[in-house]
Amino acid sequence: MRTGHFKESYGELVALTDSSVTRAWVGLLVVALLLLPLVAGNYGLSLATAAMITVVGAVGLNLLTGMTGLISVGQSGFLAIGAYTNALLLADYKWPLLASLPASGIVAGVLSLLVGVPSLRLKGLYLAITTLAFAFIVNHVILYAEGLTHGPNGVFLPNASLLGIDVSRDRPLYFLVLAVTILVVLAVLNIKRTRIGRAFLAIRDHDIAARVMGVDLVRYKLLAFVISSFLVGIAGALLSLQIRFVNVDVFGLILSIEALAVIILGGLGSTAGAILGAVFLSMLPELIRIAFSTFGSTQSVTYTTYVYEIRGIAYGVVIVVFLRFKPDGLIGLWRDVRRYWTNWPLAY
């Protein structure tokens, strides 16, 4: 009879989860997400879509910053590249969505080698500043290469359809984004349990030691950049499908900071954390709006006048408070709560 918690094979050791409870809850979550369009209106559905797009981007950034330890403040650049590739391929070159969606990821992934190569020599702060510079350069190239990108005019997306279904409407788009999100999350969780994922973690913890253990730094750092930017590019493409009009102003630096806020809030390095953080921060503006509207009309006026500032302050406060009091993020909070109740009443 099996007693206690032990593993008998290597496969069990690296399995995604060995708990049937976790499996059941995840299954329940997926079913709930599939049924959401039956109960939610268009507004709720578009909020959920936006949250899932953020999840895709956050999971991608987390792979780079959380897992591999390469801090990037320039992922808004790759988001812009993904969104623009998708929009231009659909609008100007009449590609089908089935081809343009992966193409946006691939273009972002290939261009990420431009930042990836300098990153081989740089660490920490220097890398952050280089990626920041990259994001600026991307925005300016988009603005000034008018022949290709329509420059400051932006790009309107035509009605795109996938397998004969028009995804410009809310419900089909929701299902498309849901499918991509599930694929991306599964892919990243699986990368984490392969040699590649372990190499990423080793590089994060100590890159020289990792090299001594036989991890090819050049290859794996570039791989982290490419995979992460591929995912962020896909997120950008999905974003372009949702907002329908792509313009440089959408991809300001604030996006990169929001993205970092998401993974810090969720808990650096944890995929589940990135998902939690993305969902929480996408809902934050909504929470603030509701909070302001319950306080009467004068506050609502203040809110509508300074909507960006108030959102910015909220993000800033979230970053500062979590780093100060809960560096492990929401996922750490969840672990603490779970441990507390497991040991209850013998809390230590």
Partner: peptide, 30 residues
């Protein structure tokens, strides 16, 4: 903002200054 973070890794402190930046920006404009 910064003193309580003394002894934390540099990455965390840099992120705090980024958070501080966004807060100051919003407050100034408001």
């Amino acid at each position: 903002f910064i003193r309580p973070m003394l002894g934390e890794p540099a990455f965390a402190i840099v992120m705090v200054t980024i958070g501080l930046a966004v807060i100051l920006r919003g407050v100034t404009i408001m």
